[in-house]
């Protein structure tokens, strides 16, 4: 059983960790995992990709038409390679979710998005209803097309592999360019967007004032984290609505979520419970947030946060 993984990378020739999670997921589906690197000017990236642990073959499609990973040409490309694979896995990020379903349309397959668990080669678990429910589905398609979440599949090691590199020939480039790339606007803010951040540091009403959110910002600076807040903190006027994490706010699933002085109202939990690791800092040992956390510290945030900042700096 051969599985093809569509790699996703960012500027600066860095393969995204979620691609490495996709390789891990692919390893659960088949014995032979191939990776596909698409883009323009891929020399450095292909060297890196060939070392990814668990990949036996790396396909490289290097062409100007793929420079911006637009779904139309990339889906055409993957469709041209699909015949050799039982499953195709993409990361469940904006890129994967743009391309994979288009590919599914070309192949007449029902795609399976946001897979968080692979039960067997045709049975998958994926969240529905904004993550409040997990649905187990079985695919009757001969070829499985899935996008996988990074949080539940551990990223494979960046090195240790030695894939055979193969350049894809006969690229199916259409003369008709359906979409023209104009511009990439990288997030201006020094902080990542809440919904895409790898780390989120959130404060609740126990922060006591908007000034005290500076304490969170200092932690966030150390972790390149986004800042969030509970509804209680928003209602108390400490921060604006855009910061609100929860059922009526933003739903986040970072690798690390640090909840400071947040009691753990259900509305809040609905917005962050899919985070990979949750840390709670609260002075009330009975606070419900501890029940949904991986690690907790009971104590005064005004003592703990400066200590944490110092420890992060000293890393």
């Amino acid at each position: 059983m051969a599985v093809l993984v569509l790699l996703s990378y960012e500027k600066g020739d860095k393969i995204r960790p979620i691609s490495r999670s996709a390789i891990t997921a692919a390893g659960l589906l088949g014995t032979e995992v191939h990776a596909l690197l698409v883009g323009e000017g891929l020399d450095i990236l292909s060297q890196k990709a060939a070392q990814l642990h668990g990949v036996s073959k790396l396909l490289v499609a290097d062409h100007a038409a793929y420079a911006h990973m637009q779904a139309e040409p990339v889906a055409d490309l993957v469709a041209s390679l699909a015949g050799a694979y039982d499953s195709i896995v993409a990361p469940a990020n904006a890129e994967g979710k743009d391309i994979l379903p288009r590919l599914a349309g070309l192949l007449d397959v029902q795609p399976i998005s946001d897979v968080v668990e692979i039960i067997d080669s045709e049975t998958f678990v994926r969240p529905i209803y904004a993550g409040s429910i997990l649905s187990t589905v079985k695919s009757k398609d001969a070829k499985k097309l899935l996008s996988v979440r990074g949080t539940t599949f551990e990223a494979t090691a960046e090195t240790g592999g030695n894939a055979a590199v193969e350049k894809v020939e006969n690229l199916p480039i259409s003369d008709k360019q359906l979409s023209v790339f104009k511009e990439l606007k990288l997030s201006q803010s020094d902080r990542p967007e809440l919904e895409g951040a790898r780390v989120v540091v959130s404060g609740g009403r126990g922060m006591q004032s908007s000034e005290n959110f500076v304490l969170l910002e200092k932690i966030a600076d150390q972790l390149d984290a986004a800042i969030g807040a509970s509804r209680a903190a928003v209602d108390a006027g400490f921060v604006s609505n855009d910061y609100q994490v929860g059922q009526t706010g933003k739903i986040v699933a970072p690798e690390l979520y640090i909840a400071v002085a947040i009691s753990g109202a259900i509305q809040h939990l609905a917005g962050m419970k899919d985070s990979k690791i949750i840390v709670a800092i609260n002075k009330d040992p009975e606070a419900p947030i501890f029940k949904v956390s991986d690690y907790g510290i009971v104590g005064d945030l005004f003592e703990i946060l400066p200590q944490l900042e110092a420890a992060l700096k000293a890393r």
Binding site: I128, L134, S135, T136, V137, K138, S139, K291, V292, Y295
Partner: peptide
């Protein structure tokens, strides 16, 4: 006709271990 057949659904649990650590060093 559907190709992706629902087998079952369950509420996604939010309960975790909740290890209480004694210090910032331990947390780090």
């Amino acid at each position: 006709a559907v190709r992706l057949v629902s087998q079952s659904v369950q509420e996604s649990s939010s309960v975790r271990e909740g290890v209480i650590v004694g210090s910032v060093e331990e947390l780090m």
